[in-house]
């Protein structure tokens, strides 16, 4: 229940970031082409949104299996060996997130000490960049969760994103559409039959 709510919130947040970036850049074009003016903070804002999108999105991607990887080889292994390598890999992912979290912390502390603002918006730089720490901390949480799942035999691998599978959804949709059209046509034909 709570987990679902959190996932929903994360999804809404990330979708909003993507939409906001798109609309900001779109608005800039409209302003420039239509009104001969610009939005002086738009560029900095768009890029900042992009950073939050990627850095927060990385951990969400682990949770829902949105990342891609080469899992053809480990999938050939017996189940236990697969699980073992997945655990080692998760351990290494934790090392990665930990190192970058540590580096981000030092970096942000330094920026906080100097206390400079963003170029175009009156926001402290360290606050705008706080997503570095948040993002890598979230990654650690998601990897711990994933590791726990593997230990509990709930999953064997990272559950990689499959572009092929995603494209298949388009196929399913189209088939449903055709089916519906066929039914409608049949209905119309039979209507016409009734009338005659």
């Amino acid at each position: 229940m709570v987990r679902n709510l959190i996932t929903k919130l994360e999804e809404t947040f990330l979708s909003l970031l993507l939409v906001a970036m798109t609309l900001l850049v779109f608005a800039e074009v409209v302003m420039r082409f239509g009104f001969n003016s610009g939005i002086h903070w738009a560029q900095e804002m768009t890029l900042l949104l992009a950073a939050w999108f990627v850095l927060y999105g990385a951990s969400y991607g682990i949770k829902v299996g949105a990342h891609i990887g080469v899992d053809v080889f480990v999938k050939l292994l017996p189940k236990n060996a697969h699980r073992f390598f997945t655990l080692v890999a998760i351990g290494l992912c934790l090392v990665y997130s930990g190192l970058l979290l540590y580096g981000s912390w030092i970096y942000l502390s330094k920026m906080k000490m100097i206390g400079i603002e963003l170029e175009d918006m009156p926001i402290q730089k360290w606050m705008a960049m706080s997503i570095l720490v948040i993002g890598f901390a979230m990654l650690i949480i998601r990897f711990l969760e994933l590791g726990w799942k593997v230990l509990k035999h709930q999953t064997e691998g990272f559950g990689m994103h499959d572009e092929a599978e995603e494209s298949m959804e388009i196929a399913k949709e189209l088939k449903a559409m055709e089916e519906q059209e066929r039914l409608e046509k049949e209905r119309k034909d039979s209507d016409r039959g009734d009338r005659s």
């Binding site: 420039r32 001969n36 003016s37 610009g38 002086h40 560029q43 900095e44 175009d120």
Partner: peptide
């Protein structure tokens, strides 16, 4: 620089 162009009624734009 922004103020400089605004002073001649031009439109300063920031672009990478």
């Amino acid at each position: 620089l922004q103020a400089q162009f605004e002073a001649v009624d031009a439109v300063p734009l920031k672009k990478p």
